[in-house]
């Protein structure tokens, strides 16, 4: 694994019963790159994310990450929280916020693995614990400001409109200070202006040194922000390359539009 990569996946295979959700998938994400993973519904994209974040345990294959300034490390079989702690954060396709908590608290939860205060610190409200709490709050607030939710910090997360909930999920993921961010359909269900905003937000996050792997159905968004694209179909990687290369690939067109279209 050379120094320019943050994620290297080789031969990833995952079966659900008799169904092969992922078949020998290879994928790389370079430093500071925006990589898109596309494919028709049920192609195995979310399963891929779930394998990387250890929600599922893949049957075969290697997943290796290289955090900035550290040695490469295999992440197969780690606990999900350990993967997050190493610096991979994700959002969810069907938004999974902590509904009863405030917007700010949601992001503060994301700071959990970067803070240390224990039970004793909380009970005795030590100086150290208070300072850490304060720092955590400020950090969380700055993440909210980054996604444009600074003025809604005290609202209940479930009361936010849909688009804002997606952005809150990103803020929450960023609070874990990842070097690789996995976005599962960040623009799903958004109107064009919200999608544009998402486009700018994702680019801004990349500028801050975070590599991004995203699943997305909105082709306009994918084509405009991605450096490279991988295409999955029935668990098989059928194409990869720059947006232009992929857009011209006949197998991709077939997968998306069906066999008969080929004539």
């Amino acid at each position: 694994m050379d120094g320019d990569q943050v994620l290297q996946v080789r031969g990833l295979t995952m079966d659900f019963g008799g169904l092969r959700a992922l078949a020998e998938v290879d994928l790389d994400v370079g430093r500071n790159e925006i990589v898109a993973l596309i494919g028709p519904n049920g192609a195995g994209k979310t399963t891929f994310f779930n394998c990387i974040t250890s929600v599922h345990d893949p049957d075969r294959g290697d997943m290796i990450i290289q955090p900035p300034g550290k040695a490469p490390q295999r992440i197969n079989g780690l606990k999900p929280n350990a993967v997050t702690e190493l610096g991979i954060a994700r959002t969810f396709q069907n938004i999974r916020l902590f509904k009863d908590m405030t917007v700010l608290e949601n992001v503060m939860v994301g700071r959990h693995c970067r803070t240390r205060a224990g039970i004793a610190g909380a009970i005795f409200s030590t100086k150290q614990a208070r300072a850490e709490e304060r720092a955590c709050m400020d950090f969380a607030f700055s993440m909210l400001a980054k996604v444009g939710l600074g003025n809604r910090a005290d609202e209940k997360a479930s009361e936010l409109p849909y688009g804002a909930q997606r952005r809150l999920e990103i803020a929450r993921a960023l609070a874990t200070e990842p070097f690789l961010l996995l976005l599962d359909e960040p623009a799903a269900g958004m109107n064009p202006s919200e999608t544009d905003e998402m486009d700018r937000l994702v680019s801004r996050i990349r500028e801050e040194g975070v590599s991004i792997l995203l699943i997305e159905h909105d082709m306009k968004l994918v084509m405009s922000i991605s450096d490279r694209i991988y295409v999955l179909d029935y668990g098989n990687l059928i194409a990869s390359g720059t947006p232009q290369e992929v857009a011209g690939n006949s197998r991709v067109i077939k997968a998306y539009l069906g066999e008969s279209f080929d004539a």
Binding site: T53, L97, F98, E105, M108, V109, C113, R172
Partner: peptide, 17 residues
Amino acid sequence: RAWIALREDEIACEAMG
């Protein structure tokens, strides 16, 4: 906060480290 997050959504909670 970790307790409440766990109550609300175990999977998202783990994904937050």
